[in-house]
Design a protein around this nucleic acid. Structure first.
Length: 469
DNA sequence: CTGGGGATGGGGCCC
DNA sequence: AGGGCCCCATCCCCA
């Protein structure tokens, strides 16, 4: 009869033995050629660690008497070194320089546990998910049923060349896609087809994930890169960052595995709130060029599609497009609206938002939808929102004869008179209700006041500068 | 319940 | 490579 401790010790020792055999090229029955470098490995380990090898070995290499040879040219030898080291040790050497390529390789090799660790690494580096992490920490006193505590402590590699380890059998089986497996990106379990089903989430989250709902294919039929389920980090979580943890804080647990204490991680989260943009830039700067994956997988994608997203199946022609695309995964929203604070992934989206919401850019009466000109309508300001009303609609509400006030600080060339809503909260423009929905509650209460005053305000293009946090 | 419209987000691609 | 434009899909709210 084995205790869990005995079993764990036995498994660790067995893995060490296998790793020793690999390094001595003993009983290796699979050769992997990467960038001209030959790696020796055991089919059993490859089969157990990688969905790609599971497919490859089960379908193509039935002759156990002959060594199998696999050639990869879609990632570097260094990257595969990290991958195979992980296969034989459960420890993943991640750094800001290799995390993207390791994740791409893991995507290709269908190693979802490695992908999860890489995601967590990136997330931690960018610190774009404080709420979820706080939730994670808060659970450390009473862990979720599908989240082993040692995973919390060991599975996340922080900045530098730390190792991310997945130790326990439950961790590995979970990350491999067992029912109820813990998804490090949130409370949604990783299902057998690697999908944290967006349909199980609020629609507000699904809205930003719609482009990344990877096909839920059975493992035996899909292309390796289709195995990756991109997981969007929610907009509301994009608030803080975590700096690299200095080496002197690096500790080891009783089993000799590198780890951080949950307490220390909490401290790091609280104490760090800068360099997020730098982290993102470092990430982008080290983004590898993954070429030829489309052809390798036999897909019908154009050969000109050279850059593959490490989070999902999307491929683009330009690195810049991939950088832009990655924001939908990282949750990075570097462009805030100067008027309302709402953040966007692109500057053009901020401008579009500003024009439509704060600038009354559309020459259409908000109420009757008729086209209005400067002569036939006026701009109405409701909080930070501005829209146009025709003279008829204004007259209907008795606001056609209000005095015009001119802003003293109006230093642009905008001469549009604007009606500002303020005052009596019992009155409210019915057609402006819809627009208030998206405003903060405190602001709404203020904006529901109704007392029209016509004055001139800045209606020009504001110089909106991206602000990185 | 449904269709319409506004707001938003993302991809492709040109400059 | 970044900025910007165009287009389209989706979500949400309202009538």
């Amino acid at each position: 009869m084995f205790s869990k401790m005995d079993l764990s010790f036995y498994q660790s020792r067995l893995l060490l033995q296998l790793d020793e055999q690999r390094r001595r090229d003993l009983f290796c029955d699979c050769h992997i050629l990467v960038e001209g470098k030959m790696f020796m490995a055991h089919r059993n380990v490859l089969f157990a660690s990688s969905g790609y090898f599971k497919m490859f070995l089960s379908q193509s290499c039935r002759d156990v008497g002959q060594p199998s040879t696999v050639t990869f040219d879609v990632f570097s030898a260094d990257t595969f070194t990290a991958i195979i080291d992980y296969m034989y040790s459960g420890r993943l050497p991640l750094s800001g320089q290799n995390v993207i390529e390791v994740m791409s390789a893991a995507s290709y090799l269908q190693m979802t546990d490695v992908i999860s660790v890489c995601k967590e690494f990136i997330k931690s580096s960018l610190d774009i998910n404080e709420k979820e992490r706080d939730n994670l920490f808060s659970l450390s006193g009473g862990e979720p049923a599908h989240q082993p505590r040692d995973y919390v402590q060991n599975n996340v590699a922080w900045g530098g060349n730390n190792c991310a380890s997945i130790r326990s059998d439950s961790d590995i089986s979970g990350c491999r896609g067992g029912a109820g497996a813990w998804n490090p990106y949130g409370p949604y379990p990783v299902t057998s087809n690697l999908s944290s089903n967006p349909c199980d989430r609020p629609t507000s989250q699904r809205a930003s994930e719609r482009h990344h709902e990877a096909p839920q294919l059975p493992i035996t039929t899909c292309c390796p890169e289709e195995r990756v389920q991109g997981h969007k980090i929610s907009e509301t979580d994009s608030t803080t960052k975590v700096n690299n943890i200095p080496d002197d804080e690096y500790i080891q647990d009783e089993a000799g595995m590198d780890c951080w204490t949950v307490t220390r991680r909490k401290e790091m989260v609280k104490s760090s709130d800068k360099n997020k943009a730098t982290k993102a830039e470092q990430l982008y700067a080290t983004m590898p060029t993954i070429m030829g994956i489309a052809e390798t997988c036999g897909k019908d994608a154009s050969s000109s599609m050279r850059f593959k997203c490490p989070f999902c199946t999307h491929m683009v022609k330009r690195k810049a497009d991939l950088k832009r695309h990655l924001r939908c995964h990282t949750g990075e929203r570097p462009y805030p609206c100067q008027a309302c604070g709402k953040r966007f992934t692109r500057l053009e989206h901020v401008r579009s938002h500003y024009r439509t919401i704060h600038e009354a850019g559309k020459p259409v009466c908000r109420r009757c939808k008729k086209h209005v000109t400067e002569e036939t309508g006026q701009v109405v300001q409701d909080g930070t929102r501005r829209f146009r009303l025709c003279t008829d609609c204004l007259a209907e509400f008795g606001v056609d004869s209000f005095p015009i006030e001119v802003d003293d600080d109006d230093d642009d060339d905008d001469d549009d008179p604007t009606i500002v809503l303020s005052g009596d909260e019992d009155k409210e423009l019915p057609w402006s209700q819809h627009d208030r929905v998206q405003q903060p509650k405190a602001k709404l209460e203020k904006d529901t006041l109704y007392n029209l005053i016509i004055h001139e305000v800045d209606d020009s293009d504001e110089d909106i500068k991206p602000v990185l946090y």
